[in-house]
Design a protein around this nucleic acid. Structure first.
Lengths: 121, 121
DNA sequence: TCATTATATTCGAAAACTCGAATATACGTA
DNA sequence: TACGTATATTCGAGTTTTCGAATATAATGA
């Protein structure tokens, strides 16, 4: 049914609708990482990271594997990286509008600096 | 800055993280539609539709044009349709896991029926 | 001007999300 | 067994979303 599919898509979007979770997905881009490395790499609170990972697990965005002491996370399907890449292009192709959007949202960081470095990565 | 980009992506995902808004985007797939047609086509409450449209507007997912009495909506960038299509494929390629996910979420509709009709559209 | 139609906005309540603090669990090792 | 490390879960407060009901606005036509 059409409805299920929409619900499913909404669930996936919902799962990705947080900067931290996006950061996690991006960090897993090049392969498996233990929770600890993610926390370190992204500078997260341990509990907070675990909560976000729980969400990504629940929505099947990531899968995990226990190895002794630690838990390794992997993206279940790299297609999600493609989605993020599409959005990056989307971001830059509408750069002007996007910047004003970020302003409205209240973007503290130097979003304007992007203008200087331009795309790349 | 990396952070802005993630924030931006999160905003877009957030905007799409609702079945009704996904339905709206899909309905605009083949071009412009006035709000009224969207309401009719999707069977929405007028106020509710307007609220969701406001969100899609705020996040620049759609743009609108006034013509006399009515307001026509268009997708700002059809690349978003691609994203939805990618997710449809994702949905089917993990069908088994996905179904159990939908169950957990509490999917009333006949999700299982999908097994019968399979992909297509 | 007064209706009528199309759409948007505001309001208040219920539900869902997010965070850090505290606590729990599981494994490895002394 | 007792301890340390890695990770997960629970709790409560604050914030954000979502909805329908009511109301507002804008354009059209009588």
């Amino acid at each position: 049914m059409k409805e299920s599919l929409r619900r499913f898509k909404a669930e996936v979007f919902q799962a990705l609708a947080h900067p931290t979770r996006i950061a996690i997905v991006e960090a897993l881009r090049d392969g498996e990482l233990p929770a600890g490395k993610l926390i370190e790499k992204l500078g997260l609170e341990q509990a907070n990271a675990s909560q976000h990972l729980a969400i990504l697990r629940a929505k099947r965005i990531v899968v995990n594997r226990k190895a002794g002491n630690q838990v390794f996370y992997t993206l279940r399907d790299p297609v999600l990286i493609e989605v993020l890449d599409v959005l990056r292009r989307y971001f830059y192709s509408h750069l002007t509008d996007t910047l004003s959007l970020l302003e409205e949202i209240g973007d503290e960081s130097g979003a304007i600096a992007i203008k200087a470095e331009v795309p790349a990565k």
